[in-house]
Amino acid sequence: MLLDPAIRDWVLIPIMIVMVLVGVVRHQVTVLLNGTPKKADLKSARETKALQRCGLLRAHGVHIPEHAFHGRKAFLSEAFEKGTYLKETNTGNKPRGNVMQDPAYVETMMDGMKKNMMNIVPQTVIMGWINFFFSGFVLVKLPFPLTVRFKGMLQRGVETHDMDVSWVSSLSWYFLNLFGLQSVFTLILGSGHAADAMRDMQAMSTMGMGAAAGPNLSPTGQPQDMHKIFLAEKENLDLTEHEWGLENVETRLLVKYGKKPASVLLDQKKAKIAKLAGRQATKEFAAVAAPSAAAANASRKKGRRQV
């Protein structure tokens, strides 16, 4: 079997050129559509920073003395409870309205839609064009043999059983280009271009929401209730116990300069653990004692009521 050279000049190369050009145009249009990045809002920045502040206090509270830690803990606990750092202070317990009326949310949705449209429209048009004019064309013969399994990949649109697998159909040539032109685009447009079809496909499969989501949108795209997050963080903070890093710094320094044997530090550690264990035991005892006391109280009340 021989291929007409006109097929090479009028089908094979034009498909490739069209696909490259469409990719470049897509890149430019995406750049235009994206426009200026969305301006951050002072209040939402404050909201996220407050969470960060709490996290830092929990992680690095070791470095500040006892009184400083407890002062901050009390302050943050109260602030989180009251919602001082919330963007809108009064929405704390109000039922949330329709998300579609939230302009920020709609905007994110629109962004995702726009990106998807930019992906779908040109690809559909090119595929339609190839299907309409060149369906059933055989364009290339690969210079190497392949197994029958590749038939589906290389001869889409040409349903013959007997043709050798190394012949490539027009539709398959389109797909090969779609996935293979990535590095060509990188050459033309530099890295980080928007002509990449593969990336868009991935974006499409996750509905394009992952990357577009703002700071207070969850991965599913729903706005989160920050007050709840704050309350959860407050709980974390309440559970954090302060352990000061400088408790035994004098001993550590003396050991460092060789004035005391290193075993002193170890002894101190052991003593501390023993002390902690002791405190734990008393706490458990208290926990066991408390419910029984409460029960006794309740029964007393009941008794009074009956009287």
């Binding site: 003395p65 400088l246 710094v249 004098e250 550590r252 320094l253 460092k256």
Partner: peptide, 15 residues
Amino acid sequence: QLALKQFCRVVELCR
């Protein structure tokens, strides 16, 4: 008292 601990920390961090 607290200052002493902090000064110790300084020398501990920077011999």
